[in-house]
Design a protein around this nucleic acid. Structure first.
Length: 249
DNA sequence: TAGGCCATCTGGTCCT
DNA sequence: AGGACCAGATGGCCTA
């Protein structure tokens, strides 16, 4: 598959190397021959006109071949870079990684990434809301009790943000496949703050692979926020039909 | 065996 | 002019 998309390419038509006699070069040679034939007729036509700069049609066969190989090589490198970027994206996507797990296709990777971003955006908004609520409640309590030991600047660091912080940690901890993120941070909040149920990161993230669009089970809808659930998304036909593809493999 | 996915080649177009 | 980007064509590999 595209595991060979990296440095070593097992494909027979692997280019840099093959100019003529491998089995995979049949196609290239055929194309190249037709190209050269057209080239020749072009040159013959051009010779009548006389020329200033050396156009492509005036290049020798070897020069044309070199040019073609150079272009092919660049294109190959470009596609390899693209595949590398795609692999980088796969690495941070919430799906099971491993040798026994089939790699996400490109289209699936992109669709899953889109849904993941939408979900994270919604989660972030909800987090902001919760933080605002907590701080608001905290300020009210402080003004009533006039707690002397907590300065306004220090309060955020101490206060009843534990549930929130823990939910954040558990959020981060869900990326178990991420090597840089130790799973030890994934300590479940003792009393399961509302955010975790909303975030639904545990269930939906697993479900993403099977059905990236159906994030609705634990999803709430917010005005003005892009919602990834299937109910809210009236995608154009081609796109929505692609959603089915995303998790089929 | 058909269909999906992919790598590669190629020519065209646009940009610098 | 040269390079980047794109899309079409083609053939190979893999899986249901």
């Amino acid at each position: 598959m595209d595991s060979d998309a990296g440095s070593t390419c097992s494909r027979s038509s692997s280019p840099d190397l093959v100019v003529d006699d491998s089995a995979g070069s049949f196609f290239s040679n055929k194309m190249f021959q037709t190209y050269c034939q057209e080239n020749r007729s072009d040159r013959e036509a051009d010779q009548s006109g006389g020329g200033k700069a050396k156009t492509r049609s005036q290049l020798s066969k070897e020069e044309v071949q070199d040019l073609r190989l150079k272009v092919n090589s660049r294109e190959r490198k470009r596609m390899h870079d693209l595949n590398q970027a795609m692999d980088g994206l796969r690495e941070v996507m919430p799906y099971a990684h491993g040798p026994s797990v089939r790699k996400l296709s490109k289209i699936s990777t992109l669709l899953l990434a889109r849904n993941y971003i939408l979900m994270l955006s919604s989660s972030l908004e909800e987090m902001k809301k919760l933080v605002g609520d907590v701080y608001g409640a905290n300020a009210a309590v402080q003004s009533r009790t006039a707690h002397p030991s907590i300065t306004p600047a220090a309060s955020p660091a101490h206060l009843p943000l534990h549930p929130l912080a823990q939910s954040l940690h558990s959020l981060v901890g869900t990326s178990q496949h991420h090597p840089s993120t130790p799973a030890t941070t994934a300590i479940p909040a003792p009393h399961s703050p509302p955010s975790t149920s909303f975030l639904g990161f545990h269930a939906p993230v697993q479900g993403l692979l099977k059905d990236p669009l159906h994030l609705t089970t634990s999803y709430r809808h917010f005005p003005g926020m892009p919602c990834p659930c299937s109910l809210c998304q009236t995608l154009p036909t081609p796109t929505s039909s692609l959603h089915g593809l995303a998790m089929n493999k």
